[in-house]
Each structure stands twice: as C-alpha cells, then as structure tokens.
Design a protein around this nucleic acid. Sequence first.
RNA 1: GGGCGAUUAGCUCAGCUGGUAGAGCACUUGCUCGACAAGCAAGGGGUCACUGGUUCAAGUCCAGUAUCGCCCACCA
Length: 879
Amino acid sequence: MRSGNPEALASPYDPAQVESRWYALWEEHGVFRPRPGSGAPYVVSIPPPNVTGSLTMGHLLGESVRDLLLRWQRMAGRETLYVPGMDHAGIATQNVVEKKLEDEGRSRQDLGRDAFLREVWAWKEQYGGLILRQLRRVGVSADWTRERFTLDPAYSRAVMLAFQKLHEKGLIYRGHYIVNWCPGCHTALSDEEVDHVEVQGSLWTLRYPIKGTDKSISVATTRPETMLGDTAVAVHPEDRRYAHLIGRMAVLPLMRREIPVVADEAVDPKFGTGAVKITPAHDPNDFQIARRHGLPAVVVIDEAGVMNENAGDFRGLDRFEARKRIVEALSDAGYLEKTEPYTHTVGRCSRSDTVIEPYLSWQWFVKMAPLAAPAIEAAKKGQIKLFPGRWKKVYLHWLENIRDWCISRQLWWGHRIPVWYRGGETVVSPDPPPGEGWRQDEDVLDTWFSSWLWPFAILGWPEKTPDLERFYPNALMVTGSDIIFFWVARMVMAGHEFMGQAPFAHVFFTSIVRDAEGRKMSKSLGNSPDPLAMMDRYGADAVRFTMIYLTPMGQDLLFDEKRIETGRFFANKVWNAARLVSLRLGDEDLSKVRESQLSLSLADRWILSRFANAVKDVTRCLKTYRLSEAANALYHFTWNEYCDWYLELAKPRWTEDADPEARRAARWVAWKVLDGVLRLLHPFMPFVTEEIWQAIPHEGETLALAAWPTAKRAWLDADAERQIEFVQALVVAVRNLRTECNLPAGRRVPVVVRGDAAQLELVERLRDQILPLARIESLTVSRDGTRPKVAASAVVAGAEVFLPLAGLIDVDGERARLAKEAARLLDDLEGVKKKLRNQDFLRKARAEIVERERTRLAQLEETLEKLKRAQESLRVAQP
RNA sequence: GGGCGAUUAGCUCAGCUGGUAGAGCACUUGCUCGACAAGCAAGGGGUCACUGGUUCAAGUCCAGUAUCGCCCACCA
C-alpha cells in the first residue's frame, strides 16, 4: 500500500505537466507487452497509417477507441497486445514525394528509380517519426518492440510469398485487359480506387456513312474523342431498323477507316439511336463486345491521357482538348447530328481526382471468387461479427459480386512484383532465379496487396513464430467503414487463404469524423485540426475522452474543437474531486480497513450502490461497443452523483469534531469510490487517472495494471437509493423555494418539514448533511402536524416543506406559483384518471403498469390536496 | 437503377426489449459557502419530419410520403 501523496495534486490542474510523466513509466514496466492473463489473448493491430503525413482527428478517434478497449481488457485480466505500425501507401506516398520534387524543380524521371526510392525512404523516416510521436502522445498502449512497416524486409518477404502461393494455385494471372488507368498517377488502379461522380456533360450523336450507299448509321457517345479508335458499330440483333446494315461496312469519319456493323445482345435498342460505336481499347463494354466478334483494338490515348500516333491529325493533343477539336471537325464535316446536355457519371482517381481513362494494358490480377467464398461463409456463420451489424449486408453484397483485382501498379514505391523474365521464360519467385540475364517485372503491387496480410504478417508469417501461434487470430479490428472493401473484406479473405481462419472475431467500425460543415476530414482538404495541437491545447486525456463521448454508434461524428472542452472540464472536475478527497483522507492506512468493520451511513451505502450500478452499466456498454454511452454513464456518475451529492454529503463527517467512526467510514468510502472511478476512467483518460491514483493510497505499481472493478452485489441497496433520493428531492425543493422567493443566496433559512414518521426520521438522521446542502438555518420536523402560518411551500414525495418567512415572501407571488403548480398537476391527474377509467387498459395492460397508475393517482391527489391547503393558509394569513 | 442511414430542445446527439420526453453546449437568474468560476445553485425551452396502421398504450413496431446524407451499379 502506497500512502499516496496529496501534495502532488496541485491546483490548478495542468494536463501538459501530468501527461509528460507516465508514458515512459508504462513502457518501463512493460505494461504494453503481453503478459499472461486469463482467457484468450486480446490482440488488436493498428490499421497502419500511411506514411504520407501526420495523423488526423479520424486517426485520433480510432486510437482512442482501440486504446480504450485494450486498456479495459488488460485491467479485466486478459493478456493484451496492440501491434503498431505503418503502411508504405504506394500511390499516396509516391504522389506526395513527386509533388515535393516538382516544387524543387525535379522529377522522378530525372532521378531514376534508385535515387527516387532513396528520396521516399527519407520522407518515410521524417513523417513516420512524426506519426509515432503522435501515437505516443495519445497514450496508446502499443508494444513498440513489435512495430511493423509494410516495406520491412520480413514483411516484404511475406508479400512476395503470398504472391507466389496464389500464383501457384492459379489465383494470380497476367492479362491484357481494360483497366482503370489514372493518367495523373500513370498507373493502373483497382475498381475500388475509382470514385464515380456525376457530371453535366453532353451526348453527341455522330453519323457514320455506310460504305457504298448514301445511307448512314448514327451513334451516340459521351466521349467523341474515342471515335478515332472505333473498330465497329454495334446494333441489337433483333433491331429491325438496322437489320439490313448488319454485315455492311461503315466509314469512320475523320479517319476514313472502314469498320463493320455487328450485331450484339449487349446493345440496348432503346438507348440513343440504338447503335453503338465500338472502341475496344477505351471502353470496357466495347472491349467485351470486340472479343466476341474478333474485332481489333486501336489504342488512341496514351498513358498520360494524350492522343497518340493512331490519332491522326489529333496526335499530341490532350484528351479533353482533342474532344473539343474532334467535335468541331465532325461538325464542320457534317458528321455531327446533334448535341444534347446529358448527365452521367465519370470515374475519378480517388488519389489525384484525375478522370480515369479505361486503358487496355497488360496487368496482373487476382481471381477473387474462390477467395471470397470462405469470407462470405465466415460472416454468415457469425465467425466474424461486424459492429454495427448492418455492415454485414454491405460486406456480403460486395463479396458476392466480387470482380477480379488488378494488383499491378506502374509505380516505383512498393513491393516489386516477384516475377522474372528471360527470353520467353517467366519465373515467379521472391528471389532472382539462378543464372544470368533475368529481368524483374518493373511494376509494383497494390498497397492493399500487402496490407491484406497485416493480421498475420505482423506476427511473423510465413514463419511459424511463437507470436503467430499465440496471437492469431486477433480479437478485434477497429477501423472506418470507408475501407471495408479495400481492407477489411480482403483481410478476411487472406486470413482464410493463408491461415485457414478469419483474422479477427470482431470488426468495429468507428464514426467518420467530419468537420462542423459535415465534410469528411482529410489531409487533402486540410480541414482536420492538427491532433498534436489539440492535445497540447487541451490535453490528450481531454481529447480522448471527448472523442469517445461524442462518437455515436454507427453515425458520423461532427467535430468542433469547442467540444473538447467537455473532456477538459471533466478531467479538471475529477482532478479537483481527488484533491478534496486526498486532503481529507487523514493518516490511517485505508487498505487495512475492512469494510465489515465500518459503520456505513446511509449516504455511504447509497454511493456504493450507485457505484456498483455504474460499474455494471459501463462494463455492459463496453462489451456491446456502445462506447459513448459508457463515457456518458461514467461522466454522469462521477460528476452528478459522486461529486455533486456524495462528496457534499460526506463533507460534514470529515471535520475534526465529527464522530470518529463516521469519519472513518466516510473517508474509506470516498477513497474507495474514487479509486473505483479512476479504474473505470483509466481506459478513457489514462494520464490524469494514473497521476491521481499515484497520489492517493493505492496498491501496485501502476493503475494501468490495476484490476477492473466488479459490481459487488452486496453493495446494491435499493432502500438506500430510495431514501437518498427523497433527501435529494427535499434539498432541491428548499433550494428551489429559496430562488422562487428571491432570497439572497447567502441567507440561511428556517425550514419546517411535515411528513410521515419514516420521512421525518430520515430528515433527523441526515440533519447535519441537509443543513449545509440546502443552506438551512434551522430545520424543524413537525411531529404534531402543525404548519407555519405564512410560508412558501412545496410537496416532496408526499412530505411538505415550508419556508416560514412571514414578511419576506411575496404572498401573491407565492399563491400564483402554487396555483400554477396545481394546474400542472391537475393536467397530469386528468390523464391518469382517463387511463384508469379505460376498461381495456385495466383488462389488458400488465398488472404492474395498472398498479403504478393507481399509485400515481393517489400521489397526485394527495399532492394537490396539500397544495390547496397551502394556498388557503396563505389566503387566511393575508392581512 | 439498387442498398443503407438520418429526421427528437437554438446546436450536436442519447432514448437498448412499446408504459409519465433526456444529456452536453448555448440561453436566463443568482452565487468569492476552504476541491473545482474549467466551478456551484435554480430555471426557461420539444405538436419526437409527415400520413396512415397495429396496440389498452407509439419517439419506440409496421407501411407509405418528403427532405438530407452515404455506399454500390460498365447503359453508349
């Protein structure tokens, strides 16, 4: 038992000072390393942040949530492990470094591959370091000895091996297909990396002459520039308008190339003219149609979005400039039939916002359907549970309609594809094959092809390490729903494929943090406050608590810096309550005190009962991921019950002249409940709670390893709760009367209470506590039933409270107040009476509900009766 | 074109299995009572988006409508 050190709790509370102290101590004590516990290990890993820059408030929310759950589980006795790390984030990082080079007047092409990669690594060192500092500042209980980076040698090896294994199973293939190409980033993308946005464009109708006739066929398009690469016109086979043209040749305007008119089921005869121009190299649908008809593909737009050598006169023009010029040219030549405004969607690169160009190229793909099957089953069988549950539908829908995954990227920053070529030979291997002359594939892998291995690659896979043995599968993944496809679903697939089981049991989706205007916070928008600045200004504890307090289950979080005051004020409140308690604890070693030896007062039994309830509430909320509700319950208990009522009720018993036994009990209970509050609060606000805990009597080295409280059944005491509730109502009523009578706040007032024997006994028993709480000068219980002649009055649970203040109160005002109160109750009474007259209600409602209404009726009538008499007595008293 | 979510006090949101509408902030009034003005005390403020239905009883369950938001979708 440490006696604690009350002087340590200085006033005022200074978060910066407190928060600088504890992280090193926790690390020193190995708090964050796994240590044997009960039950299965509780393993969580970080969704590795991109090394592109600093963290956002969204990350801060995620870290707060993960650390909350980890610290709770650790205190509850589980073996816990939080694996930290970072993601190399291929495109994102390469883009920011390229941007930096551009600002310096350099380019990656100038540098060449190796020098460029050195630049990126330097960037990674700089910004990765910033991220790590931020994570420590938040207080996350990560095991830094297990820190991982997706481009670490061991991790890279895992990526290579995963590629090789999938290739061996025939699940990876190379193909020449239309992919989403970003001309800005100069790389292929997966479908998930493309955002579809609606644009107000045009629909142009072009007329293609039919060779050898004076007829023509008209086609509609939103992308006239692609017509240079048309190799056919397609119509529906049963479209009678065009039946006679099938098999004829059309002459492609501007290019004067002859292209066939073909029939294909995919054409919708009802759209546009019912005839479609076919550009196999620049449209995925057209590509499919072309395959069916053996049509050639002519690429007319290059990797940078510029018209190429097949574009004739338009060669060298940017694709959007070319569009304009081609429309003009078609119009001049009489081939433009009409132009209509048209709303449609275009794909944009989610990284650079560049309009995506469907582009025919050689890429590597993963065949996804076989991988999706076990991931679907895992969710359906409940082996993996999503919170909130509605995400299951979204997850399943995606998996059940999954398409193959384009994993090659034409970038330099990333895992180079482990494929080697020599002459006509191809070898898939992490290492160069023996012999001379092997050339490795130039492309790198999609970032997500490395991060989908995260839950086991961080534990040493493919080696059978003790960590992998012990800590796979993980318990929980906490992340944003915006990466449910990118990452979550793919991790589940990889988990089953490489480890034979789901990577985690639970997935908890946090809120998306938006700014006050509802825009998603992001680095690119620059609308996220700097988390470090927030923590410097308000304290990490305050920020953490507030984020949890604010995060609604399954809804977005609208963040406003001002809201952080909630957490800051709360931390301050806890600090000051602890100051009060620690100053009054005395010298006795409270750990030696046995509860059974104490004579607990009613207030003591009440707060212990309330505390037991709070423990139950908070624990239940955490178990079901209702995190803000847990924070709320704790906030309310600490502030409104412990501070506002219990500490005030205890104060009179802490004085020198109080009864020693009562003082001892009050000290012990105040300490015990404070200790319990600190334990419950520690996962939310680790720093301030540790600081306080160390300053008061405690056992153990650190609060981080103290036991999570349990709700003691013996502490639950409904009687005590009812009785203190009455006392509270009584005190509030006196305070209210004082305000209503406009009495100076400093003035002590006489009070008379009438009520039943039990109520009067209670008032007598708690007299010493009631006096200061309600600022009462003299408290008289009216045993003989007499009542003051002129008084302001109120009715509390059937008892009457009087402020006998002849000459001081405004009699008319008091009468009006009583009348208003009576009118309000009369309304209620009517409602209750109506219910009780209703035969259906009496017959069908549950007996206890009917009984409650009857009780309420009696109470209302009694209260009204008393109010009436109070009014009468005022009338009589009036001179 | 599908799917999901939201609509409750001025603002941001709770309200789990139907049974007398809640919190924080903001607002009003009064407080240097030895923990805390980052505080204390007392207040004002809501036809729970709309329309039907189920029920003795609906903010809560069902159906529909409206508005806003998000996700998915290769109709040129």
